[in-house]
Amino acid sequence: MPRPRLEIADVFRNYGPAYRQVNAGHVSLPQLKVMSAIEACRSEALGGHVAGCAKCGHHHIAYNSCKNRHCPKCQGPAARDWMEARAEDLLPVEYFHVVFTLPAEIARIAYWNPRSVYGLLFRASAETVKTIAADPKRLGARVGMTSVLHTWGSALTHHPHIHMIVPGGGLSPDGTRWIACKPGFFLHVRVLARLFRRLFLDGLKDSHRAGQLTFFGDLDHLAQQDTFAQWLAPFRKTEWVVYAKPPFGGPEAVLAYLSRYTHRVAISNHRLVSADADTVAFRWKDYRIKSGDRQKVMRLSTVEFIRRFLIHVLPDGFHRIRHYGLLASSARKTNITTIRDLLGVQHAEQPHTPEPESEIITLTLREPCPCCGGQMRIIEIFRRGQKPMSRAPPREQAA
């Protein structure tokens, strides 16, 4: 994949200083850290090393990456490593993709309270699936799931939702049987949506009562407990959106999906079209169009583009990929071994791990020389702010 001619880093380097100055006091510390990390990523500011081929003598410079989870250039290698670990957990069963979305009005509360509301979104959606699946009238089994938080729409708008990958079945309550769901069908989305609505709204009310929510602007009046309860009441009668996609076509399809979603950031470098001091243009997909070409180009003021990118910066230490039920980290290996025994599968299948559809998968020392295939070795290391002594063409890659 060729290097994009325009990157988020270019926008931040050229117009970020002015944005920080104009919005001083309105940009959070985590957002400032993300801007600085992306600006410095794979540049002399972070140092790096010079790699040389032991066979043909080819040299290249590898600048260090920032490894920030919001950086578009750092997610390809991170996704690859994560997928290699998850491939060992795949089961020879159908997998389903379920999406839980918040109403736009509720999402406004998440905008000011990301840690509380996003955490509740994770818990409520996971509890919904576990509860409905455990119902003897439904599946009657203990299930597991992997949940991924996305906070954006294609136009960089604030749109928090959970992508959930669920194996099509679970363990019986006594753990002695694998109970498979019906072929091509997991659980009724309307039943899921109604329980999710109740659990989330009850949790939101509890968070308000515990003083964990703050309100600003035209939502300031919701700080009063009675007012907040009245404001929430209509949402208990509206239909919430839970969407279940058709099952994946096998383990490789599951990994292909995970490569696209687990380490995705709000916008990739390859979607950028142009940028100057006044306007940033980027490609986006208009899902309101039911048929035909959904691809369009959106133009935002540079200030608005940076603002939209930064609203998707997660709080420090907040995990955007979580595992629940049978796949919870504490018991995952034991549960997977048990399920494989029940299914008569002795060893985990090792499907081909697809390359993540993200930024460039960079050349590292575990990869051969691009010229002759020989082994690459580090011949020089240079620190932050230093320049390499060896002369070699720089490459956009992580060290």
Rank of each mutant, 00 (worst) to 15 (best):
I8R: 03
D10V: 09
R13T: 04
A18S: 13
A18H: 08
A24T: 10
V27Y: 01
L46C: 13
G47P: 14
H49C: 14
Y63N: 13
Q75M: 10
G76Y: 03
G76D: 10
D81A: 15
W82Q: 11
I109S: 11
N113S: 12
S125T: 09
A133V: 01
D135P: 06
L139K: 03
V143S: 06
M145R: 04
S154P: 07
A155F: 05
H163T: 13
M164R: 11
I165A: 10
S172L: 06
G175Y: 07
R177I: 08
F185N: 08
R194D: 15
F196M: 06
R197P: 01
K205M: 07
D206R: 15
H208G: 00
A210V: 03
Q224W: 09
L232Y: 06
P234S: 13
A244M: 14
E252D: 07
V254W: 07
Y257F: 10
R260D: 05
V265G: 08
T279E: 11
D286W: 13
D286Q: 14
R299F: 04
L310P: 10
L314N: 13
P315S: 13
H323I: 02
A331Y: 00
T334F: 02
I339K: 06
R340P: 03
R340C: 03
L342Q: 05
H352A: 09
G374H: 07
M376G: 08
I378C: 12
P393C: 03
